[in-house]
Design a protein around this nucleic acid. Structure first.
Lengths: 232, 232
DNA sequence: CCGGTCACTTGATATTTGTCAAGTGCCCAC
DNA sequence: GTGGGCACTTGACAAATATCAAGTGACCGG
């Protein structure tokens, strides 16, 4: 593990509160690797041997059933993923692949579980992280079950706009076909949905999004903190 | 709190490993109440003042957005619910109501968080519980995004059949309109879906389900441990 | 026992979403 | 620069799902 990777991980909520000694134990056992784009890191169903942390690049979590594939989330630096499987010592429920060149830290699940048992601060951080993940997925489910695909797209754009610090022109963070899958629709339908947002002041050219009538978009999207706020 | 309620709670995975002293602290602060059917216990958005445990009866978790309502889960005895909100000290993401006469224990979130900080065994149990909840919702999301409503119904019936210890005749545990909402469809559509499962050996009369051709049903449903197994 | 409510069902129809097929245009490798 | 691949778009059509309206039947209170 490269020396300058260490502080980046240490700053993660998950690790920032734990004792230095245990953190060093974890780091000593860790691997770091740089992967090209489109490399499979995890296959759902496999035993969860490692807790993963993306240091740079980006990783897509996806699932397959009966020849259908759906995108569940995109993980961006610096974040851990598949913590639940690691702690539970269960199989991965999702697969993961790089979408661009990415640097990933692999922490052996065995060590994570061992230190989880010994370091109370780490255990508490794990709980916070899991609670956040859980609430995040619940919000996703609400989004899926309560909204139409057009409404989901509208809300996604508003959230992206907020993440871009309120800029009215910003870039889509992921490819459209991935976005379509994430939003639970086909690429064809996303194309059409984008067009039908034009009356609401949304123009998307390539990856560049322009929002000219935020009020109209909000009226359509009806964002709710209990679905769309990352923090709550 | 009635004396005979205590052992039931103590046996929950969440509490079985914690020290007797802390458990007594929790119990002392707890309320128990019996509610009639159709009573709202929790409104989404409210602060999570209590961790809830159903002792008897059953509780529906549901969400509302823009005048639409959807059923997220049905909690049966003996289980806790809304642990994540309690731990995170955040607002409830879901509302809860009794569907029948129910006995519910209310543990003040403050006490739960305090003991969570002091009792390592309890903290570990919380983590296991949260990991299970998280994985459960991930499976739900896969179910929703990857399957058609007919496939969801077919898999629901197979799961119910397994929960009924493999009986080929069993009762639906919830009303059809709730089931429809839980499966992400309208009651009308559920009716039609039930009819279209007839060629697969499924007959539903009132609340009684009869499965005569398990093999055909499985071929349609294609159940997967990574979506349908409670344990994984 | 009767009447009313309400869940459920059924049919007709509308809307949403997906599929298939044929483009267009961008990006990258040679 | 140029050709090929691939993401994206567009249009026509098909399937899935929702909506609306009307009816049936079971349960419950009086």
């Amino acid at each position: 593990m490269r020396a300058d990777d260490v502080p980046e991980i240490r700053e993660l909520d998950l690790f920032s509160g734990m004792s230095e000694a245990y953190f060093q134990d974890l780091v000593r056992a860790a691997y770091v690797q740089t992967f090209p784009p489109q490399v499979d890191l995890i296959t759902e169903g496999d035993p969860a041997d490692f807790l993963h942390v993306v240091i740079s690049g980006s990783v897509e979590l996806y699932c397959i059933w009966n020849r259908h594939e759906t995108s569940m989330a995109t993980v961006r630096p610096v974040s851990s993923f598949i913590l639940a499987a690691t702690i539970k010592d269960g199989p991965y429920l999702m697969s993961a692949r790089t979408t661009e060149k990415s640097r990933v830290v692999l922490l052996p699940s065995l060590d994570v579980r061992e230190i989880f048992d010994k370091d109370h601060n780490f255990a508490r951080a794990v709980v916070r992280e899991l609670a956040n993940c859980y609430r995040s997925v619940v919000k996703d489910t609400k989004n899926l079950k309560l909204r139409s695909s057009l409404e989901r797209l509208a809300n996604y754009l508003i959230r992206s706009h907020l993440r871009a610090e309120g800029a009215h022109v910003f870039e889509l963070a992921i490819e459209k076909r991935r976005l379509a899958s994430f939003l639970g629709m086909t690429p064809e339908n996303l194309s059409r949905a984008i067009k039908s947002l034009r009356p609401y002041g949304v123009h998307i050219d390539g990856t560049q999004v322009t929002i000219t009538d935020m009020e109209a978009l909000q009226t359509l999207a009806k964002p709710s903190p209990l679905i769309d706020d990352y923090a709550t």
